[in-house]
Design a binder for these strands. Structure first.
Length: 304
DNA sequence: AACACGTACAACCGCGGCGCT
DNA sequence: CAGCGCCGCGGTTGTACGTGT
C-alpha cells in the first residue's frame, strides 16, 4: 500500500528549531489547542511538517514538561517499568509526569543502560549477564548506537563476545523457573498495554541469589503476586474476565487490574480495597511498582 | 592550544495502528 | 473489505558540547 509523504519536503525546514518557530508554534497551540498536526504548520505559518511540529511541542515546548535531571526514584521506576513493558517508551513516559518518551528513551540509552551493565545486568532482559537462562541471540552492543560508544569499563568483562536475548524466546518451552508466562491485554485508563507478560518466579532460583549478591541494592525481580511465597495455586483465574487473579499475602484474591495498581478501575473485577499506602484491605503487604511508597500512583497520573 | 574521542539530546525517519470512506 | 490518510511510536542520526591526551 503506497503512502504519500507526510509533507511536501521541498517546502519544509529541517533541523534545529529557531526561537521564532518555537514562538509561532506555542502561540498557535495556545490559541487553537493541539491536534490536526498535518494542517497545523500551514495554519501557524510554519515551514515545517506536522510531525516535526508535534515532536517539537511534545518533547520540548509543552508547558508541563519537567526539565532537569532524573531523580534516583525516577531512575528506579524507569528500570522497573522497562523490565515490565520493554521499549514501550510512551507507556513508561505516561507513568512519569512531566517526562516524554523521547527523553526517557534517550536517558535510558545514555545512562540507565550503562548503569545496569555496570551492575552486571542485561538491560534488555533485566537478568544477570552471566545468567545461563539469558538466551543469547544477539551480540551485546558495545555501543548504543554508532556514536553512543560505551567505554571499555562499562562493559562487563568477558573473554569472548557475549550474546543476549532481546526478545521473548520463540521456543515454546519456557525457562524452568517460570511457572507462568502468558500474554495479557490490559487496559489502563484509556491506554492498552499489549503483549504484557506476566512472569511469576519460583522461589530461590540460582540466578536470583546470584543477582542479589551482585546488586544487593536493587531488586529487579518484578513479581505480580505476593513476594513471600509462590506456588501454582497462587495464580487463579478471574472468573468474570478470564484473566488471571492473584493471591495476596493475606490469602485474599485480587484481580489482574488490582495487581497493576489500578484497583477500583472499571477493569477491576474483584472487591478488594487497597489503600494507596497499602495499609488496609485484603492486599496488605502488596507493593507493585512502588505504589506503597508513593513512587507511582496510577490514579493520580494522567496518561499522555 | 589543538585534536580526538566520548556523551547527551534534539530531531528525523520509517512503520504500524486505527479510523474513515 | 480494501484503500487511504493521519497520528503516534520506536529506532536511528546529527551535532553541539565535554573531557582526556
Amino acid at each position: 500500500m503506497g503512502r504519500s509523504p507526510c509533507c511536501e519536503k521541498s517546502h519544509t525546514n529541517k533541523g534545529a528549531w529557531t526561537k521564532e518557530e518555537d514562538d509561532r508554534l506555542i502561540a498557535y497551540i495556545r490559541a487553537h489547542g493541539e491536534g490536526c498536526w498535518r494542517s497545523l504548520p500551514k495554519a501557524a505559518g510554519l515551514l515545517r511538517c506536522g510531525k516535526s511540529c508535534r515532536l517539537r511541542w511534545i518533547n520540548y515546548l509543552r508547558p508541563d514538561l519537567k526539565r532537569g535531571n532524573f531523580s534516583e526514584e525516577e531512575d528506579e521506576l524507569i528500570i522497573k517499568l522497562h523490565s515490565l513493558l520493554g521499549n514501550k517508551w510512551s507507556l513508561i513516559a505516561g507513568r512519569l509526569p512531566g517526562r516524554t518518551d523521547n527523553e526517557i528513551k534517550n536517558y535510558w540509552n545514555t545512562h540507565i543502560r550503562r548503569k545496569l551493565l555496570n551492575r552486571g545486568i542485561d538491560p534488555a532482559t533485566h537478568r544477570p549477564l552471566t545468567d545461563p537462562n539469558n538466551h543469547q541471540t544477539t551480540t551485546i552492543p558495545t555501543t548504543t548506537n554508532h556514536h553512543n560508544a560505551t567505554t571499555p569499563h562499562d562493559i562487563i568483562p568477558t573473554t569472548t563476545t557475549t550474546t543476549i536475548s532481546f526478545s521473548t524466546p520463540t521456543t515454546p518451552s519456557p525457562p524452568h523457573h517460570l511457572i507462568k508466562h502468558e500474554q495479557q491485554d490490559i487496559k489502563i485508563q484509556n491506554n492498552i498495554i499489549k503483549d504484557y507478560e506476566i512472569k511469576t518466579i519460583l522461589p530461590v532460583p540460582e540466578n536470583q541469589e546470584q543477582q542479589q549478591q551482585r546488586c544487593p541494592d536493587l531488586n529487579l525481580e518484578l513479581r505480580i503476586g505476593p513476594p513471600h511465597h509462590h506456588n501454582q495455586n497462587d495464580v487463579v483465574h478471574d472468573v468474570e474476565y478470564g484473566r488471571p487473579a492473584f493471591m495476596t499475602g493475606g490469602g485474599g484474591i485480587i484481580c489482574f487490574a488490582c495487581s497493576l495498581g489500578i484497583q477500583n478501575s472499571k477493569e477491576c473485577s474483584c472487591s478488594c480495597t487497597i489503600s494507596l499506602n497499602g495499609t488496609s484491605g485484603k492486599s496488605m503487604g502488596y507493593d507493585f511498582l512502588g505504589l506503597k511508597n508513593g513512587v507511582l500512583d496510577y490514579r493520580s497520573l494522567e496518561m499522555k
